[in-house]
Design a binder for these strands. Structure first.
Lengths: 183, 183
DNA sequence: GTGTGCATGTAAGGAGTTACATGATTGC
DNA sequence: GCAATCATGTAACTCCTTACATGCACAC
């Protein structure tokens, strides 16, 4: 059975207390969507696959008329997760930033407009950072097993610091551009 | 005609002097693959589409028995590129980092192993940074229209600074972990 | 009683990758 | 002569997203 990253994401979320597909998706949105986005249409088939492969067990957890599944890690599932966490193999970091691509070609614009675009991008960084505090990454620990998890917070801190760094860097470059313009 | 990011990448590369599909791919590998990867199997069909849509003109640039096309921007193509560079609309930044996803679940490992994984990730950052100087982003300006482009270098500087920042941040966290372990 | 959230799934389609197929030129 | 690079394309496949389809529970 071939395991991909989405498999480990699901195993991890189950490991830390998200039992239903819906709950996994919610925890993933809050906690990991910034560096590994998912959709429900991926989660449900993958849950079935992992159950079939013996890494998860599905229990019925229906309440009244509303059906709900509760998944649990098997020993094999736990082992697979730990082996992945320890293994050095990984898919290369891939990023798609249309903003940076525009930056790459910014020489095609006159300097005044370069500055306008840059300031707008900088503003966007600030917005993203604020959105982070609208309860994203930090809320994730709560969404799953509160208190037991340190790393969602650590990653949140890193994200915040990286955004600050980017904001500052852009600000400095913008100042340089402004200085060039006033010559 | 619907234009996607790959369309603008190609228009931009043509604008700055890459005339053949092969050359576009090479310039994209060196210059933009870090934030917008592409493959030849995307470039060739898209070149045909853009030509059909009147944004590019295809000239024959064969040398002897080896066929080669040389593309040129039409006025509409140039306008489309500039409009895109100016427009505030953009696809949201998407990133897929399996490394960060692992970090998110690192609480499942004992602290000693957390540290091993962290140090390995940190080492990887260093390697990526070195690879950058094996002539990637900075060489891109050369690969296309040398001297005319400032931003490939600017983005290279940013990338370098961001990697340094990440390396430092990880180092500090690693030290904290070490301190906790020696308690 | 109505909207929001909880809950599970499927279908269709888009974007992008790897692999395949072919051949010329250039430098060693 | 042979390997690496230049050069153009197509086919098959994978991954992932959006849209569709359905229904219960709870709070206002």
């Amino acid at each position: 059975m071939k395991l991909r990253t989405i498999s480990f994401l699901i195993l991890g979320m189950v490991r830390f207390g998200a039992t239903s597909g819906y709950a996994i998706k919610k925890a993933a949105d809050a906690g990991t969507s910034a560096f590994w986005p998912t959709s429900l249409a991926q989660v449900y088939p993958e849950l079935a696959r992992l159950t079939e492969g013996g890494l998860l067990i599905r229990h019925d957890d229906s309440k009244g008329g509303r059906s709900r599944a509760a998944y649990e890690l098997t020993e094999a599932g736990e082992e697979a997760l730990l082996a992945w966490l320890r293994s050095p193999v990984e898919t290369p970091l891939q990023m798609r930033s249309e903003g940076m691509l525009r930056g790459f070609f910014a020489d095609a614009l006159p300097k005044e407009e370069q500055l306008v675009v840059l300031r707008r991008q900088q503003e966007r960084i600030r917005e993203v950072k604020e959105h982070l505090f609208d309860g994203d990454l930090r809320a994730a620990a709560k969404a799953i097993d509160a208190g037991e998890m340190r790393y969602p917070i650590v990653l949140g801190d890193f994200g915040e610091a990286a955004l600050d760094f980017t904001y500052e860097w852009m600000g400095q470059f913008a100042e340089q551009l402004e200085a060039e313009l006033s010559d």
